[in-house]
């Protein structure tokens, strides 16, 4: 299978503070990858570097074979890489409908805006009810739905979700997992960052563990991965 996204030995960070120390990963067409690991070890930084908000210091990032390492964020969105940021309220003083309309800003997404809007409202019926409300008046779960909805309006060819269930109640979490599952079923390649490993196991085929700014372990969902093993990876072996 052809690689959709190739990240090759990328280092980077904020200002002069390095966060990523040589990350490499490859995502194939139709594949869904989950990223997990302790907080502050570079998962979000990696997504921000792929989407062009940060420039990689070294290494290369390729999308469908062409390098995107030095492109502007809006050019990267034009190619179809869409990053739904962690806990984003989107455009707080605009209505839900207006937020969604802006999601289709890129020239590639605009012709299909009407069809995509219908699809988004099918996946998240609650956004239809809240259509006229300002984004800032939404609950945490609804904000998350809006952020993902706006991402889908950009007609993604690779969707990156950063902790979509952060801080949500279990019932909402299930609702969101179902929605992300529905999105995954359409065949859009996914790069999913999440703390909840069970959530990742349900939705992705491959899990990468990121620690100290590098991929340190890889699991496949089939390889009977149990929670105890991951707890061990996180916290080390229990000292008796």
């Amino acid at each position: 299978m052809a690689a959709v996204l190739e990240v090759e030995g990328v280092t980077g960070g904020y200002g002069r503070i390095p966060v990523l120390h040589g990350v490499s990963l490859q995502l194939d067409a139709g594949e869904r990858i989950g990223l997990f690991g302790p907080n502050g070890h570079g998962k979000t930084t990696l997504l921000r570097t792929i989407s062009g908000l940060l420039r990689p210091w070294q290494g290369d990032i390729r999308f469908e074979g062409q390098s995107i390492a030095s492109r502007r964020p809006n050019r990267i969105v034009d190619l179809g890489i869409v990053h739904v940021m962690q806990g984003s309220t989107m455009f707080r003083d605009m209505s839900v409908a207006e937020n969604l309309r802006l999601g289709a800003y890129s020239a590639r997404a605009r012709p299909d805006a009407a069809a995509n809007l219908e699809r988004v409202l099918q996946i998240f019926p609650r956004l239809r009810e809240r259509s006229a409300q300002h984004a800032r008046t939404l609950s945490g779960g609804e904000r998350q739905m809006l952020a993902i909805g706006v991402g889908l309006m950009a007609a993604p060819r690779l969707l990156m979700l950063d902790e979509p269930t952060l801080g949500l109640a279990p019932r909402l979490k299930d609702e969101l997992a179902e929605a992300v599952g529905a999105i995954a079923a359409t065949g859009i390649p996914l790069l999913l960052v999440e703390q909840d490993v069970q959530f990742l196991l349900d939705l992705t085929s491959r899990l990468l563990m990121i620690e100290h700014g590098a991929v340190i372990a890889e699991f496949t969902a089939e390889a009977a991965l149990d929670q105890a093993h991951i707890a061990e990876m996180y916290f080390g072996k229990r000292a008796n």
Binding site: N74, V77, V82, M85, S88, M90, F91, R92, D93, M94
Partner: peptide, 19 residues
């Protein structure tokens, strides 16, 4: 609308492809 979007959330504006 894009101009207002930039003033409300610059990162989100970049992520929907607004230059």
């Amino acid at each position: 609308a894009a101009l207002r979007a930039v003033s409300q959330n610059q990162d989100a504006a970049l992520m929907v492809g607004i230059p």
